[in-house]
Amino acid sequence: MSAAVQDEPTPVAVLGGGAWGTTIAHLLAGRGRRVLLWLRDPEIAEEIRRQRTNRRYTGETRLARGIEPHTELAEVASAAELLFLAVPLAGVREVAYRLGEVLTGEQIVISCAKGLERGTHRRASEIVKEETCIKKVGVLSGPNLAREILAGQPCATVVASRFQEVTARATAAIMGPGFRVYASSDVIGVELAGALKNIIALAAGISTGLGFGANSLAALITRGLVEMTRYVTACGGDARTLTGLAGVGDLIATCSSELSRNHQVGRRLARGESLDAILATLGHVAEGVGTTQAIVEHARELGCEMPIAQGVYAVLFEGAAPLDVLRELMARPPRREIGIGAALG
């Protein structure tokens, strides 16, 4: 019953005009939806309205017709039943708090933010539930590099929610010929996988920056997946999710693409640049940096072993040299390969 969803009766809202938010708005508008895009910067709003481009975040791509940019959050949020939240994790709580003033229990929020809040260890969907009355939340995550999507290349993603109505409506709204959506009920797994892969992407960038090739990268990805799985199950997620698009899929895309911001940060770290210098010139948010801090701290509390993440943490925040960290990782005592198969039971 609940899965039988008609076309959205109201416009769809996208909150956040960065690369990912703009791309989601573009996808939705490309499916013929009326899209209300909330962003803070009135100049970018004006640019999207007049020229259908967002040069700062999505380059010269002509965005689909039907995107209406707004700078008033409350107006956008109260006009839609289905909302995609695509602000960086650091902004989620503030935006969610403001949403809490206007949202009602009927509405659906799909979080597209990847990361973990420092100190509270909360995922974006948890923050939304804390700050608003919304119960019907979902998350969207997968191997979705914005630039490739904007170029019209085919890709797939996962929408997870405990509510079938949420996955069904989000899928109906956004799935199209070039964008395939799979449903999941494992919110924890899908959401954490999206955050965790950024840490491994930083490590992959470091590896590439050090001049290492495919063997190193494959070992990093595989062992990275093991510790991702360990962390996800410790948090109550489903290990099987990690074998899917949000896990392995996103990990492969992020670690093998040089487009990924986290990958870029890693490469520059390997060249000896300081984190502050890199972040100052990046122009975008690299979620992996904050996520590494939050997840490594949380993993310590949980007693969950994450050597690669620990190594990335040491490079980022403790001034460790990437090569020393690598040497330490390679010198860990030999052990049996307990792949993710073991966690799957």
Partner: peptide, 25 residues
């Protein structure tokens, strides 16, 4: 809600303006 703002609980069970049963929800 946790910030002390009142919630209209009827909205949780509405669809298209009508209260409906949805066993999974």
């Amino acid at each position: 809600d946790r910030r002390g703002r009142p919630i209209d609980t009827r909205r949780y069970v509405m669809r298209g303006g009508e209260p409906v049963h949805d066993p999974q929800r």
